[in-house]
Structures are given as structure tokens and as C-alpha cells.
Design a protein around this nucleic acid. Structure first.
Length: 587
DNA sequence: TGCGGCTATTG
DNA sequence: CACAATAGCCGCAG
């Protein structure tokens, strides 16, 4: 039974006052039907699908609450019906921040917050053979069972069966967020240097999930005819039938095979075959990767042909017509799945080739009529982040330069190129080659930063968990007994060393991204791509200059918010350009 | 059918 | 290939 409109208005007014007067966050859930439930500590309201867009738009604009969501699936369903929220507390994102890993469904989050074994969570339809109630007992209308676990029926969707249940589900997510907030407070109390800003990270990571939902829905503008033409130029016209596709494949293969004795039966797609082919040509290589074969292009014509074949084959299989058909809509938008934080260090990831699009294909990423791209990438983000998180005074001083490697080279007394290798080697844990000599200079020149990195590596080797500057848990595990101990633990050391830098960089990047998202709305600047240290905005032509300024201003704001207690702040720089095609931005 | 290895691409 | 990621194809185990 639906409440009368007057009742809803009265309830919304109560909700508004709890947000306005007490600054309360609002739990928000969306049922499959499109109905929405909202809850504060004292008020619950359910809104029918027809009114959701209007009610949420006004509430978001007028009340500005922090919306509490179970996950970005909620944001995705809202975006699908035209609602974009300003800020959120994403329980799944915060769970990943607090505990590492990827899985963060409500049942698991709830169990772990309450100290319950998540391996023993009740499942749907499970009979309790020890004689208890099969459904866990207690009141079905309450989401929590007497044993403390959430009801599997509710988790499977029964929460949406009635307005009362929806209200309870929205109230529950609010309780979960409060428990998470307390854990973050405790974290800050126990380790002010490492996780003092974990609460801020929780907020920016949450809002980044809203951004991900929008990125997935909006997509990246592609000139579809240009893309078809480009692919055709690389692998030929689109095959009409399966047989035609096979013939095209055979024709490409023949370009390589013609350089070999006939009937040698080489499968170019089988690396072992290719390797034995090379051996018959008198070439012995440990593997057949392109960088290794590159130097041997002139040794035998088959090698050059093979490398060309590999290039075309990649377009044909991964970035060919099938890719266009699957991921580019009729509206010319390339859409992929977005994740706000991957399992390791917390970078954003994307599917559909959005993060590994070959540079050859970038020319077809073209702004829509009346629009331009404003592209910005952060300069030398990782060493600057290392300066910030380690607090190394000399490295912080180096960040004041537009080119951080220039003062580093001066301090080490080496060429700039050597300084760059040394800094990167320190962050990645490289010890071999030319890096070794330069690294010794780093030890004396930047001891604080180097100790930060070696402490991280040591923790990794010993299997001790770490937290990034923003509070993300980097889970480390003991090296298994049967493993090659030295090799595996060295790998763990490199992984840990890098995760602390890459993870912190990802956190700063997301603060920047959500700041741009928020401030950019006023000039219709939409983020259409996030690429680890790069933002691509799609902007009306007339607002391009404003967007350039916006990107710089938001970086300054993000850097300030991200490193709140530094008396000498690290300087971050962005290279910004206005372009019609993404390819035009390439330096 | 799922998984590890190899390969290619990106930051 | 020093760190991270997605993705496709191959051979092999089950």
C-alpha cells in the first residue's frame, strides 16, 4: 500500500530536517522495481519509481547529504534512470579500503564488522541439520538473525518485498557505515602518520564509485566510421561470413609462412611452435617476445614478417570489429566496466580496452560536435607522492621544480636520465643493471624516502600487512613453505614497496578526479576517462578555457586536502591541453 | 570447462 | 623486461 502524497511530503520534511539540523547521512537503497528507500536514524521514507528522479534530484541539491550506499550497483541503477548524486559513503568501497581484497558484498561486510566468521555465513535454502530453525529463527521482518548473521533471503532480494523492509534495509546500511566510521576513527587514533586521513580517503573513494557508475554509463566518444576505416586499413574489410574470416586469417598467416620452408606446419599462435621455428633458423631465444626479436629483425625476413603479423593479429582479435560491435554503442560511445579500486594497490581499472587502447587507435577518440577534450596528466606523480608519504625533506624540496629529476640529478651528481632510473628503480625495487650504482646515491641523498621504501619491502618479505598513506590495507601473506623462498619473498618486497607508492598515488588521483567531477558540473565538463594519472574531460567548446583552469585549481585543492598536515607541501603539476582527438594530446 | 603460460597493450 | 592492470589464444588437466 502506497502512502498518500501528503504523508510522503511530511516524511521528506522530517528527513530534510535531520539532514539539515543534525548533519546526518542518509541510507539509500533502490529496489529492482525502481522504488527508493531513504533512512536516517529516525526517519524512513519510500518513494515510488515515478517520483524518484525528482525527489532525489531535489534532495541532493537542497540537503546535500552524504548518501550511504551498499555498493556502486545502487549508483549504477540511479544513473540509469537519470539521477546523479553529489557524494556518497560506499560501504563496499570503504570495506575494500579497510580490509583489502575485492569481495565486499553486504553479507561479508556485515559479518566481518561484527566479528562473525564469514566462511560460516548462512546460505539460501540451507537446512540446519543440528535442529535449529532452518531460517535462522526470530522475526522474518528483521534483517538480522538471532545468531547475528544477515538473513540470506533478505540478501537475495527479499529486502525489496515491502516498503517496511526497504526502509529497514536503508536503515541497516546506515548502521554499517557508522560501524565503518568508528573503525576508521580507531585507525587514525592508533596511527596518525599512516592512516590519519583514512576517513577522508573513505569519502573520496566512495565518491569515486559514483564517478565509475557515470563513466560506465556515459562512455568515451568514438568516431565510429573512422574506427571502422582504421581497422580496415590494418586488417582488411569486415568479413561477411565465418569462412571469409578464416580466409582472411590464412592470408595474414601466409605473409609470414612464405618466408619458411613450405609445409613446415608452424602455428603462429603457438609460442612453442614459433620458438622451434626460430631455432631451425639458427636463432635461439628464451622466449619470443617482441622486444627480444626486435634486434633480430634483419637476421631473417621471417622475423620482421612475424612482428608485423603480431601487430595486425592483435587488432584483429582484441581491437577489431568484434571489439567495436561489443563495446561501442550506436551513439558512438565506448563503454566498459569500471572498478574504483583494484585488488592490489587500489588503482581504478576499466574493461573494454579503455585502459590499454593501443596508441594507434587513439585518433578515433574524437569529441562530439560542439565539444572538445580537455586532457590533463599529472607529471611525475609517483616520485612526488613518495616525497609526500615519506616526508623526505630533500625530495619534497625537489618537487618544487617543474621537473623533479633535475634537482635530483644535481644532488646525486649524475645525468638526469640516470637520476630518473635511480628514482624509478628505488620505487620498483630494481637492483640489477645500471640502477645499482645510481641507487647508492639515493641512499645518501634521500635517506628518509629510501627508508620508507625499504621498510615497506621488509614488511612484504615478512608477510606483514601494510597501510598506504590514505589508509588502504595492503594485504601480505606468508610465503608458502613449498615455494622458492628467496625468489618469492623478493617479489613480495618489490610488490610491497611499489604498492605503497602506487596506492597513495591512486588515492591522490581519485581526490583530484572527484573534485573535478564536483566543480566541473557547473561548466558541463564531464569526465569521460580516468587513466591512473590522466583525466580526459568532454567539454562544450566555449568552456574549454574554464576547464583548463578547473583542472589546475582542482589539483591544488586535491593536493591540499590529501596532505593536510604538511608544513612544506609537496607540489604537484599537471600538463593540460585542449584537443579534438585524444591522439592530439600525445606529446 | 577452467586455469596457467605466453603475448601485447596501457600507465 | 622493475611495478600495476585487461585481454586473447594455446595447451593441458579434469
Amino acid at each position: 500500500m502506497e502512502p498518500a502524497v501528503a504523508e510522503i511530503d511530511a516524511a521528506l520534511e522530517l528527513l530534510r530536517s535531520s539532514v539539515h539540523e543534525r548533519g546526518e547521512p542518509v541510507g539509500l537503497v533502490v529496489a529492482p522495481s525502481g522504488s527508493v528507500a531513504m533512512a536516517t536514524g529516525s526517519v524512513r521514507v519510500v518513494v515510488a519509481p515515478a517520483h524518484v528522479a525528482n525527489v532525489l534530484a531535489e534532495a541532493d541539491r537542497e540537503w546535500r547529504p552524504r548518501w550511504v550506499l551498499w555498493s556502486n550497483a545502487t549508483a549504477a541503477s540511479l544513473v540509469a534512470t537519470g539521477t546523479r548524486l553529489a557524494t556518497s559513503w560506499d560501504v563496499a568501497a570503504v570495506h575494500r579500503l579497510l580490509r583489502g581484497g575485492w569481495r565486499a558484498e553486504p553479507a561479508r561486510v556485515w559479518a566481518q564488522l561484527h566479528g562473525l566468521d564469514h566462511h560460516r555465513m548462512p546460505k539460501m535454502g540451507q537446512l540446519d541439520l543440528l535442529g535449529g530453525d532452518g531460517d535462522g529463527g526470530g522475526d522474518d521482518e528483521v534483517p538480522v538473525r538471532p545468531d547475528g548473521y544477515l538473513r540470506p533471503e533478505w540478501l537475495a532480494g527479499a529486502w525489496a518485498d515491502s516498503p517496511e523492509r526497504m526502509g529497514a534495509w536503508a536503515a541497516l546500511v546506515l548502521d554499517v557505515a557508522e560501524l565503518q566510521r568508528r573503525l576508521l576513527d580507531a585507525l587514525a587514533a592508533e596511527s596518525a602518520t599512516v592512516a590519519g586521513n583514512a576517513l577522508a580517503t573513505a569519502r573520496s573513494e566512495s565518491t569515486a564509485e559514483l564517478l565509475c557508475a557515470e563513466l560506465a554509463a556515459d562512455g568515451l566518444p568514438i568516431d565510429l566510421p573512422a574506427a571502422e576505416a582504421l581497422i580496415a586499413s590494418l586488417v582488411g574489410p569486415r568479413a561477411a561470413t565465418e569462412a571469409e574470416a578464416a580466409a582472411d586469417r590464412a592470408r595474414r598467416d601466409a605473409e609470414v609462412l612464405q618466408h619458411l620452408p613450405p609445409g613446415s606446419g608452424i602455428d603462429l599462435r603457438n609460442p612453442a611452435d614459433v620458438k622451434s621455428m626460430l631455432r631451425r633458423l639458427g636463432i635461439d631465444v628464451p622466449d619470443t617476445r617482441a622486444w627480444r626479436l626486435e634486434q633480430m629483425r634483419t637476421v631473417h625476413p621471417a622475423i620482421d614478417a612475424l612482428l608485423h603479423w603480431r601487430k595486425a593479429e592483435r587488432i584483429a582479435t582484441t581491437f577489431g570489429y568484434g571489439w567495436l560491435d561489443t563495446h561501442v554503442g550506436a551513439d558512438g560511445r565506448l563503454r566498459g566496466e569500471w572498478s574504483g579500486s583494484d585488488g592490489a594497490a587500489g588503482r581504478m581499472t576499466a574493461g573494454a580496452g579503455l585502459h590499454n587502447l593501443p596508441s594507434e587507435l587513439r585518433p578515433v577518440v574524437i569529441a562530439e560536435p560542439g565539444h572538445v577534450f580537455v586532457r590533463a596528466d599529472l607529471g611525475q606523480i609517483e616520485p612526488r607522492v613518495l616525497a609526500a608519504v615519506s616526508g623526505d625533506p630533500a625530495l619534497i624540496a625537489a618537487t618544487q621544480d617543474d621537473d623533479l629529476y633535475a634537482p635530483v640529478a644535481a644532488r646525486l651528481g649524475v645525468e638526469r636520465s640516470v637520476a630518473k632510473i635511480a628514482v624509478l628503480a628505488a620505487m620498483y625495487g630494481q637492483t640489477s643493471g645500471t640502477a645499482g650504482q645510481a641507487l647508492r646515491g639515493m641512499e645518501t641523498g634521500y635517506p628518509v624516502a629510501m627508508k620508507y621504501l625499504s621498510d615497506a619491502a621488509q614488511a612484504g618479505v615478512e608477510g606483514r600487512d601494510l597501510r598506504t598513506y590514505g589508509g588502504r590495507l595492503i594485504r601480505m601473506y606468508p610465503v608458502p613453505d613449498d615455494a622458492d623462498f628467496r625468489a618469492v619473498s623478493a617479489g613480495r618486497g618489490r610488490y610491497a614497496r611499489n604498492a605503497m607508492v602506487q596506492g597513495a598515488a591512486a588515492e591522490l588521483f581519485k581526490v583530484w578526479a572527484v573534485t573535478v567531477r564536483a566543480r566541473g558540473a557547473a561548466i558541463d565538463a564531464r569526465i569521460v576517462l580516468c587513466l591512473h594519472d590522466e583525466l580526459l574531460l568532454h567539454v562544450p567548446v566555449d568552456n574549454a578555457d574554464a576547464a583548463v583552469q578547473l583542472l589546475h585549481d582542482c589539483l591544488a585543492e586535491a593536493a591540499f586536502r590529501w596532505q593536510p598536515r604538511r608544513s612544506v607541501p609537496v607540489r604537484f603539476v599537471a600538463d593540460v591541453s585542449v584537443v579534438r582527438s585524444w591522439a592530439d594530446a600525445k606529446p
